[in-house]
């Protein structure tokens, strides 16, 4: 449903953050976008949501389309209206507003009935938020904030949910809960999900398809199981070498072996 073709993104008309990226998210798919810091993953999501301009970013070339319709020139609110909702990195709640006000902001473009139905659905999904609905969002724990951030996006009624590093800085238990929720949304409601992660093992576990981004380029893509079996991915992203032995970092010189896909 979502297709990016040869997308090039520049900041300040000078710094190339993303070069020639093509990717696809099919209906009902979970697609993982993996890569290290500064690879361009977040920039790609921002380009899809069209919120690059406050940072002087711009999609210079390439096409971004949803079910054949061009998205590139549409304002951010129209993209939300078309069903692409973006959960930003680091939660980015409205810190001075209550949990319920935050969730209600997700339904900004929806009518009253859809809004209250959406709130009920989120409270069903995360009962803990219902207890804390009157709390000021800025004082919640990291895990609860992530629930609010995802819940807020769900109130908007997305067809495609884009999650930017939902596991960032969370306890393993909370990460499990979040990931279970994501998988459930995908299975039960057929919601397509574009998942940006640094934690490759985690993302490849739930995803159907994966892309690996390095220095603004897609260097590898394929079904998630195949990517997880790739030797380089294993070594550089999953942190185990052949045979699953632990790396001896004393011999760090050898660790700097070139990745095969760069040669």
């Amino acid at each position: 449903m979502l297709t990016l073709t040869n997308v090039q993104i520049l900041y300040d008309r000078a710094i190339e953050a993303v070069r020639d990226v093509s990717l696809q998210v099919g209906a009902g798919q979970i697609v993982a976008l993996l890569g290290s810091n500064g690879a361009g993953k977040t920039t790609i999501l921002k380009a899809i949501s069209n919120v690059l301009y406050p940072e002087d970013g711009e999609v210079l070339h390439g096409e971004i389309s949803l079910e054949g319709a061009d998205l590139k020139r549409l304002p951010a609110d129209e993209i939300v209206r078309r069903g692409i909702v973006h959960v930003p990195e680091g939660r980015r709640l409205f810190p001075l507003m209550t949990v319920e006000e935050n969730l209600a902001m997700g339904g900004f473009l929806r009518d009253r009935g859809e809004l209250s139905a959406g709130l009920d659905r989120v409270y069903g999904l995360f009962p803990r938020l219902k207890e804390r609905r009157r709390y000021v969002a800025g004082y919640l724990s990291g895990g609860e904030q992530q629930m609010v951030a995802i819940g807020r996006a769900l109130v908007a009624g997305p067809k495609l949910l884009m999650l930017d590093e939902p596991s960032l800085g969370l306890a393993p238990q909370i990460i499990d809960l979040i990931m279970e929720t994501v998988v459930a949304l995908n299975r039960e409601q057929g919601m397509a999900i574009l998942l940006v992660e640094q934690n490759a093992a985690l993302a490849l576990e739930v995803a159907h398809y994966g892309y690996i981004v390095e220095n603004g380029r897609v260097v590898l893509d394929g079904p998630a199981e195949r990517i997880a079996r790739n030797e380089d991915v294993k070594e550089f992203y999953l942190g185990c070498s052949e045979g699953g032995e632990r790396k001896n970092y004393r011999e760090v010189k050898h660790y700097k072996r070139r990745k095969r896909w760069l040669s």
């Binding site: 951010a76 409205f94 507003m97 006000e101 902001m105 900004f108 807020r152």
Partner: peptide, 21 residues
């Protein structure tokens, strides 16, 4: 709703954009 959106915009403009404001 619009008043809440104004507060939200004041607190985090980019995220307000992402909510469709």
């Amino acid at each position: 709703r619009i008043g809440t959106a104004m507060r939200a915009t004041a607190q985090d403009e980019t995220t307000a954009l992402l909510m469709g404001v």
